[in-house]
Design a binder for these strands. Sequence first.
DNA 1: GCAAGGTC
Length: 638
Amino acid sequence: MRVLCVAEKPSIARSISEILSGGRFTTRPSPNKYIKNFDFDYPQARAHFTVTSVSGHLLAHDFHDTHRKWNSCDPFELFDAPIQAKVPDDKKSIERNLMTEARGAQMLMIWTDCDREGENIGAEIARVCRSANRNITVKRARFSAIIAQQIHNAAQHPAELDMAQAEAVDARTVLDLRIGAAFTRMQTLALQARFGDALSEGVQSYGPCQFPTLGFVVARYNQVQAFVPEMFWYIYLSLVSPPTGTSGGNRETVFTWKRGHLFEVEVVLALYEGVLENPMARIRKVTKKETKKWKPLPLTTVELQKAGSRLLKLAPKKVLDIAERLYQQGFLSYPRTETDQYDPQFDFMSLIQKQIADNAWGNFANSLQQGGFNPPRRGKNNDKAHPPIHPTAHAGNLVGDERKVYEFITRRFLACCSKDALGSETTVDVVCGGEEFSATGAIGLIVLERNYLEVYPYDKWNSKEIPDFVEGQEIMPSICEMREGETTRPSLLTEADLVTLMDKNGIGTDATIAQHIQTIIDRDYVIERMEGSTKYLVPSTLGIGLIDGYNDIGFERSLSKPQLRLYELIICLFVHGPFKTERSMVQVCERTKTKNDMLVESIEQYKDMFIKAKREFDKVIEVRPTLVFPPDRVDGQY
DNA sequence: GCAAGGTC
């Protein structure tokens, strides 16, 4: 029997071939320069295998020519306009390859990633192969890691494609296109009609991911604007001790007030006067305990992007692009992963070995090999497809940002394989005039073993010595004052904050979060502002106008707030059928519609929102154009 | 000139 195996990407096709053939396969070119066909016998299944791949989705969806031109129709028609799925020109060679290979095979085995999109790509592959060979048997190999045992098992016990998941992705695709195109054209054309091309250049896009993303930025901005500082008062108590042998200058030990700070000045004043009456402080308790600073978790895509923004000062999109390049050069593992736990069989030692050559961290790698190795911590996430991001080869010649990203990932990997840092923390509890104070944490810390910190300078943990105190000892504070302060304004969002929010709310995927942030910047909805060394995201007048505008309309289901997107409901229905657990879904599901009814109904809901939005949109830009553009632009001085 | 999702 001849079996045609098709993976989602060329690298997986090669890995599968290596494992199943034990390294004995022949390679044939395909009409596509990135894709190779691998041939070998697989006696375990008494078959001849050909393994090839696609490169992500084969099909692209768009409207017909009759609706593709912006002025060809009212944007509203896009909710019902026919959508065609076709193989774009640059993928035609991939399609040709599949058809040729399918003609000579009795079985098609789908090896796409085991996620929803993978199921959909699998269905695309099956359609193409069946068009060339209508009798071909279609099977699905299920695997969660590129490990020999799993790959063999998948090859020998193939299952079926999950068409429900594949259809759910079709629903998502169609909804994204309809909603995105309709709202984008409506917004853009309305602004152009009111302000002309010169004022309103570019595209004012709407998308079910980019708008909630913008919504986060605007919500934080509004919080910052609405903030009113509040006064508070507290008692400041400290002891200044003379310098010791090693440290120059006086050392001040601050005892923080157990009450923190209070907002009633009279109350603090009364307590403070009590302290002043009897200012001698008595050491109530001295506690010394071992403490740890935990080494970092194995690296996921989202964490890489956050760290890249916070530590390396690179935009999330840029970090991901660089990681992708390094992956293609063979320096890194696959950079899009949600997994923060290593497989128990993972071969750490040979990867650590490869880093011994490095000038900066080679010695540390060596120490891990000489008994310093400890298994990495295990996080809670596993996408069952890819391991955490780690270096796969030593790269000595990188420069600039590539070097920075590679260095971070490598140091992170070595840190994961090391030990937690150990320290000893002293807490001193003090009573003064009936009030309790204590000095603790960073103040009384002695770092005993730096361990992973030696290779991971991104974490800071430094000793801060505290004078020796004895229980029962009485001291006269050097400073005992009532001080005042103000609550501080929340800060604007950073890119790292935004990545966290999107991740938590399920906006986009690990591979697309960075793109959505880039989109709202490219659209001039958001401006990056540097303050010191931190980059903050500030919404533009346009961004605020759009979000506040939609919020003011008061949709039942907001177009701008993070939420379970409507089509997520449909996907759930496609995949699981009606369910009753989550409240937000109950309304929809109790009606027990069929899947197609659901799709039609949700399009109807979006149509209603569209009509309302268009009406309000026209009204807003007519009556208060400054909500959309800055006053100087509206007045023509721009 | 529109979306979001794959990947090269």
